[in-house]
Each structure stands twice: as C-alpha cells, then as structure tokens.
C-alpha cells in the first residue's frame, strides 16, 4: 500500500469505509509490522510532548535568547481572561496555544515538528483549543494527529515542507492545510470534506515567502503560526458547510510546488528579502550579530 495523492487517499477511505486517520494507522502498521496499539501509543506520546510545550509556553513570559520574541502567549492569556475578545474562545485559545508552542520553540525548548519546527504551533493550537472547548479526549486528539500526518505525508512527498526549498507556504501553509483537515475529521466530517478543507487552507497561503528577520524562527514565523489557526478553522467551517474547493487538492499541492520552484532564493529562508530586509529587520540583525 502506497499513498501518492489525495485522490488515492479518498478512494481508499471510500472503498474500505475508514477515516483518514485509520487509513494512516493501517498503512504505518503494514509498513512497519508494528501493532496498531504500538503505533497509536507512540503518536499519543508525541501529543503529550505537544501538550507540555503548550503548558510551558503559555505561562512563560521570558524572552527568547535573541530578545526579539517571547511573552505574547502570556499577553494573549490575560486578554482571554478579560472576557472581552472579538473572536470566540475556540479561536482565541488556538491563537494562544499556537503562540505558546512557537515561543517555546524559539527558546530552544522541546517541541514536536508538525511538519516542521517553524510551523510547530498550528496543530497544537487547534487541537488543544478543541479539547478545551469541546472536551475531546487525548485519544480523540491522537486520531487527529494521524489525520494530520496522512495529509502532510502527501503534501511533503508531492511538494515540500521546508522554507528553504519552498518558502513559508511549504511550512505554515502545509501545517495550516493539515490542521484544517484535522478539524473536519475530529468534528465528524467526511474524508472528502477534510480534503476540501486542506485544499482551501493551502490555497489561502500559496505564495507566502520565508523571510525570517535575522535568520531566526521568530519574526514573522510565530505570528504566522497564530494566524494559521484562524485560517484552519475558517477552511474547516467552509468544508463542513458543504463548500468545496474548485481546484482539486492534488492540483493545489502541485501549484504550491510550482510556485516554490519559481520563488527567488532571497525569499526562501535566506533572510535576504521580504521582512528580513526592511529597515527594522536590518536593524535587528545588526544588533543581534554585533552583540
């Protein structure tokens, strides 16, 4: 069994009458000859590592070693506690947890790359917000990680998941696309709806460049993770409403690849363009490397 496209994934789910998550567990078990239980437990361990990163990050107000990030997850928490926020608690908590994880990453704390460290905030953001709001169990969220891995697996093998190869669309774009599909499946949507959500989320981030200020995974990466959670929820809501992506998901992924190949080197994690070369970006870089 091999998984080459979203089309193949959907046809497998349909003929076998299984969820995307179950399909991934089946495939992993077939490839590795490990039991479903072993595979499930290993994934659950990763979920717990993600939870630990959220917990450590959300109440840690200390700055990253660079001094240019840190403390915003704490601010977001105080804002939520004020009870007067524009977005509802599902979105605001997802934002807070994504920020907590990405700030933990910037501090060289332990995180789980989903699919990369630079984009590690989006998935824990949406998962632990779903848990807080709808009381999902850790097991249900673990299934969500299998859904995420199947979607990410196809994206990663047909395109790329590194900012240096394909820009931020490949990192936060892929993470957000995975997260959108996860939300749909956790909320009881069909595999077809999940893949539409993935397509709609990825389409929204096509072309996003990788332009880290001072070469650090902090500015603008942390906030892009935060915003990614909102795009994931919007895409999932559209899919659950029965709205479809006009462009099939496999073609969206192919587009992301094509756009990444055409993206100049200056906008692929070299810090030679984009926000990295704004006057403020340059000033931060000078201060960092003259210390």
């Amino acid at each position: 069994m091999q998984l080459n496209s979203m089309e193949e994934l959907l046809s497998y789910c349909e003929t076998q009458n299984v969820s995307i998550a179950d399909m991934m567990i089946n495939m992993e078990s077939e490839k590795t000859e490990k039991t479903r239980e072993d595979i499930f437990n290993k994934m659950k361990d990763r979920l717990i590592k993600m939870q630990e990163a959220v917990e450590s990050g959300k109440s840690d107000g200390t700055p990253a070693p660079s001094g240019i990030s840190g403390g915003d997850a704490l601010k977001m928490g105080e804002y939520i506690n004020s009870g007067d926020t524009l977005s509802g608690s599902l979105i605001t908590r997802a934002m807070r947890y994504a920020m907590a994880t990405s700030e933990c990453n910037a501090r060289m704390g332990v995180i789980v790359a989903t699919p990369t460290a630079g984009s590690a905030g989006v998935l824990p953001g949406i998962l632990f917000s779903l848990r807080d709001n709808d009381d999902y169990s850790l097991d249900e969220l673990t299934y969500g990680l299998f859904t995420a891995s199947a979607l990410g697996y196809i994206i990663a093998n047909r395109s790329f998941v590194s900012g240096a190869a394909g820009g931020c669309q490949a990192e936060v774009g892929s993470a957000t696309a995975m997260a959108a599909g996860v939300i749909v499946e956790v909320k009881g949507g069909t595999p077809v709806q999940a893949v539409h959500a993935t397509a709609m989320a990825l389409k929204s981030l096509i072309g996003l460049v990788c332009d880290p200020v001072g070469g650090l995974v902090e500015v603008p990466c942390i906030k892009r993770n935060v915003i990614g959670t909102s795009i994931a929820f919007s895409s999932a809501d559209m899919a659950l409403a029965g709205i479809e992506s006009r462009i099939p998901c496999d073609e969206v992924i192919e587009t992301m690849y094509r756009v990444g190949r055409e993206m100049p080197r200056t906008l692929r994690e070299t810090s030679l363009g984009g926000l990295a070369t704004t006057p403020t970006g340059e000033e931060i870089k000078r201060k960092l490397y003259n210390r």
Partner: peptide
C-alpha cells in the same frame, strides 16, 4: 518518496528552533 512514515510528519520531538536547520 522522501517521507516514509506518519512520524516523519508528526515529529521529530526536538529542541527548537528549526527542523531543517537544527534537528536535521
């Protein structure tokens, strides 16, 4: 097919800040 397993996508568990510039 560079990525072979669900744990290549959800993972690694690693110290930050970059999976390609740090963990890899």
């Amino acid at each position: 097919m560079d990525f072979q397993s669900c744990f290549d996508i959800i993972g690694p568990v690693m110290v930050g800040p970059s999976s390609s510039h740090t963990a890899g």
